[in-house]
């Protein structure tokens, strides 16, 4: 038994669990998204494979796996094959520090937040690489868009997170959650006595998260009616499947981060049920909102997107940062 409790083995097992979690989430979030889209559009959604469509993800994955991996001539073969891996692995790495409950965390390190953000920014580079390696004009336009979009939205997101760090005083995610113990008004989201603009910072965080994960209404990367499929245009079979998985892994990561930072993570608002249940409830509520937004709004225009970041979100987040520091200094 000592073999199982040894740290490297435990970490390995945890990583396998995270991969399974990401894979399952990707598969079933696609189903949830399609079912949700169906409900928003007054149609049943996929309902043929299995009872109520529950086997649809299996069918999808089987289809993707059985397809040939086409590497078009003229592409940079190594980068082209590498890009999907580089997209998915940071998302999985980041999940290793997310506390699903007080004990259910793969590796609790005291700079967890820093790690999430540093790995999170690899995503941009990977998408840019795939666009570059594809040698497709749509992919290159899309890659250029992704870079300027993610750079633009990284700034307000980090400013918001710094605001939060001033309040919490730690980068340990588990510690941040522990500080939000008690009733739901102890969540960072509602801590208006620390900073009256706390709900606003959460909204900014959520918007930035949507933009960072390239979700509608900020899906400039895919923009299927303009750029065909953007950076994914040349990818077939599981190459595309991995990008698809990474999209959902990033959503899960972004929403878990939102849950941990603002919604009290695994803390129960009433003291009922174990923490992991509450964590997942909050997580999926956020994910549902992401899906909801996607099927409700049209896509924004690219310069409107950048204007939103540079002219609205960054000034507001700077102001919340100043306000936070002033209040900490004063009280």
């Amino acid at each position: 038994m000592s073999f199982l409790t040894a740290e490297p083995v435990r970490l390995l097992l945890a990583l396998v669990c995270i991969m399974a979690f990401v894979g399952l989430n990707a598969a079933y979030l696609v189903l949830a998204e399609r079912k949700g889209a169906g409900r928003f559009q007054r149609r049943p959604g996929p309902n043929e494979a299995g009872y109520g469509g529950w086997l649809q993800p299996v069918a999808d994955v089987a289809k993707l796996l059985s397809k040939q991996l086409i590497v078009p001539p003229g592409t940079d073969t190594i980068l082209f094959r590498l890009a999907p891996l580089m997209v998915i692995s940071p998302a999985m790495m980041c999940l290793a520090v997310i506390p699903f409950s007080q004990t259910l965390v793969a590796r609790n390190i005291n700079v967890g937040l820093l790690m999430v953000f540093s790995f999170g920014s690899i995503n941009v580079m990977a998408i840019m690489l795939s666009g570059w390696a594809s040698r497709n004009k749509y992919a290159i336009i899309s890659a250029a868009r992704v870079v300027s979009q993610n750079v633009a939205y990284e700034i307000p997101m980090l400013l918001v997170v710094i605001t939060l760090l001033m309040v919490t005083g730690t980068m340990d995610l588990n510690e941040i959650v522990r500080q939000q113990a008690g009733w739901f008004w102890h969540w960072n989201l509602f801590k208006v006595w620390v900073n009256p603009l706390m709900p606003v910072t959460f909204v900014i965080f959520f918007i930035c998260m949507l933009a960072e994960t390239n979700r509608a209404p900020f899906d400039m990367a895919e923009a299927e009616s303009e750029l065909v499929a953007g950076v994914f245009t040349e990818y077939a079979g599981m190459g595309f499947g991995v990008f698809f998985m990474a999209e959902y892994a990033n959503i899960v990561l972004g929403c878990s981060l939102g849950t941990v930072l603002f919604l009290g993570g695994w803390q129960s608002p009433f003291g009922l049920w174990p923490g992991v249940v509450w964590f997942l409830l909050k997580l999926y509520a956020l994910i549902f909102t992401v899906i909801w937004v996607r099927w409700t709004f049209p896509r924004t225009q690219f310069y409107n997107l950048l204007n939103l970041s540079w002219k609205i979100l960054i000034p507001i987040s700077l102001f919340t940062l100043l306000l936070s520091s002033a209040m900490i200094k004063l009280f």
Binding site: A37, F40, Q41, R42, R43, A216, S225, P298, R299
Partner: peptide, 16 residues
């Protein structure tokens, strides 16, 4: 047109 603009849902309503 809304599909062009990235809004998928109106399509289903209009077609109904």
């Amino acid at each position: 047109y809304l599909l062009d603009l990235g809004g998928f849902t109106p399509l289903l309503y209009a077609f109904a």
